[in-house]
Amino acid sequence: NRKASRNAYYFFVQEKIPELRRRGLPVARVADAIPYCSSDWALLREEEKEKYAEMAREWRAAQGKDPGP
């Protein structure tokens, strides 16, 4: 049972969880929050997504994983 790799979207969703909880939505973990975040993610510009892509690269580097292209 390996841990899933964390991509840019994972970090975006993780950042949104406190806001979703404040709105009273039932989000205990990232998987619960995904349905509420997909439309917001789709509206982000590539420059805005880069922040989360960098977080994912840093996480992979800390895990000793290949950052890929």
Score class of each variant (00 low, 15 high):
19 E>H: 03
14 Q>E: 15
32 D>L: 00
35 P>H: 13
69 P>Q: 06
64 G>I: 13
67 P>V: 14
17 I>V: 08
17 I>S: 02
34 I>E: 10
25 L>M: 11
32 D>H: 03
35 P>D: 08
39 S>Q: 12
14 Q>L: 11
34 I>L: 08
54 E>P: 05
31 A>C: 14
64 G>L: 12
34 I>G: 08
35 P>N: 06
18 P>A: 05
12 F>S: 02
2 R>F: 10
5 S>R: 07
37 C>T: 04
56 A>F: 14
63 Q>Y: 07
56 A>K: 02
55 M>T: 09
65 K>W: 02
8 A>F: 00
6 R>Q: 04
66 D>Y: 10
42 A>D: 13
11 F>I: 05
44 L>R: 01
30 V>L: 08
35 P>A: 04
27 V>N: 12
58 E>P: 03
10 Y>T: 04
65 K>H: 07
4 A>C: 05
63 Q>P: 11
9 Y>M: 13
11 F>K: 00
14 Q>I: 07
16 K>R: 13
7 N>C: 04
64 G>T: 09
58 E>C: 07
7 N>M: 13
22 R>P: 01
63 Q>L: 05
43 L>F: 04
12 F>T: 02
58 E>T: 05
44 L>E: 04
43 L>R: 15
31 A>D: 12
35 P>E: 06
53 A>L: 11
2 R>M: 14
29 R>I: 15
38 S>M: 09
34 I>K: 15
5 S>F: 02
57 R>V: 10
9 Y>T: 02
4 A>Q: 13
11 F>Q: 05
22 R>C: 01
19 E>V: 07
33 A>W: 02
67 P>S: 11
53 A>S: 14
66 D>M: 13
57 R>N: 09
19 E>F: 00
10 Y>W: 08
10 Y>Q: 07
65 K>E: 10
7 N>A: 00
27 V>A: 02
68 G>L: 06
41 W>G: 01
4 A>G: 13
31 A>W: 06
34 I>Q: 07
16 K>M: 11
34 I>Y: 11
41 W>K: 02
42 A>M: 10
14 Q>C: 09
20 L>C: 03
45 R>A: 12
45 R>L: 10
50 E>D: 07
21 R>E: 04
2 R>V: 06
33 A>F: 01
54 E>W: 06
34 I>W: 11
64 G>F: 07
43 L>C: 08
46 E>Q: 13
14 Q>D: 13
37 C>F: 03
19 E>G: 07
45 R>F: 04
6 R>P: 08
30 V>I: 02
37 C>M: 06
58 E>D: 10
66 D>P: 11
24 G>S: 01
32 D>I: 00
57 R>A: 13
9 Y>R: 07
37 C>S: 03
69 P>G: 15
30 V>P: 14
63 Q>C: 07
4 A>M: 12
37 C>E: 02
46 E>N: 10
20 L>H: 00
27 V>L: 05
56 A>M: 08
39 S>W: 13
56 A>H: 10
42 A>K: 13
4 A>E: 15
34 I>F: 14
16 K>C: 04
66 D>F: 09
8 A>C: 06
43 L>T: 10
9 Y>Q: 12
46 E>L: 09
22 R>V: 01
29 R>D: 15
12 F>R: 01
41 W>A: 03
39 S>Y: 13
41 W>I: 00
65 K>S: 09
44 L>Q: 08
9 Y>I: 10
29 R>E: 15
16 K>F: 03
17 I>A: 04
57 R>S: 11
39 S>G: 14
45 R>H: 11
54 E>C: 09
42 A>T: 15
24 G>V: 08
11 F>Y: 11
53 A>W: 10
43 L>Q: 15
2 R>H: 13
30 V>Q: 03
10 Y>R: 05
4 A>T: 13
13 V>D: 00
8 A>Y: 02
1 N>S: 01
29 R>T: 15
56 A>Y: 15
20 L>S: 01
66 D>W: 09
56 A>Q: 07
33 A>I: 01
18 P>V: 06
45 R>Q: 13
8 A>K: 04
69 P>Y: 15
69 P>R: 15
27 V>P: 01
39 S>C: 08
